[in-house]
Design a protein around this nucleic acid. Sequence first.
DNA 1: TGCCAGGCCCTCTTTAGGGCCTT
Length: 227
Amino acid sequence: MSVFSKGVETVAVIDFETSGLGPGSGGRATEIAAVLVRGGQIVDRFQSLMHTGVWVPPFIEQLTGISNAMLDDAPPAAEVMRELAQFTRGCPLVAHNASFDRGFWQAEMAWAGCEPDPAHEFVCTVLLARRLYADAPNCKLGTLARHFQLPDSGRAHRALADASTTAHLLLRMKQDVAERFAADLGPLAVDHAVLSCLQRSSKTALKRAVQAHAKARLGAQALLLSA
DNA sequence: TGCCAGGCCCTCTTTAGGGCCTT
């Protein structure tokens, strides 16, 4: 069986709640969630508050509903990140505004002493949404959820709810990409590599990017089958 | 609360400015 016919690609959609806008400015993670997506559906979930000792400003407490008191009883951040690394091992990652989550991911993993996983390549649903949905009012997660009437995943700005909403958005995007580029992709699945290709291409180069990707994938598949 | 940071994209321009998105 070739790698292209397995159809078992699992991606991990993650979301951090934090005390600030970046680890470089003193921000630390307060909660993390990851949902595993495979075969067009969510197949597993991980969520945990995490104790770092950071103080959460009132605005963030109000925004997320995560209080300093809640974090006092949370498990140590390093312990949570090690569990998360195991939970997501071998999976490409997806996040809404991935540069934000990637910064905290790398910082918290490093503080936990976890080795980087080469499979953890990020795809950003904001970049994809800007490519695919020019008619959307904006590309905020909540706006896109309402725009596409995605399933209600619970309180916004909690990690599991936002990760679940992002996962539903990802599934919607895969469906739309498959329909929009059916002639170029043919029987190839819309996998993480396709989305990575799309998010790096300019709006006007979308079709060329998909065609180039499909051509490369078909060439690699032919090589494998002939080996 | 509002826009503190950082990364990315778009536009206009070719180096820089402005906007979006995340907590």
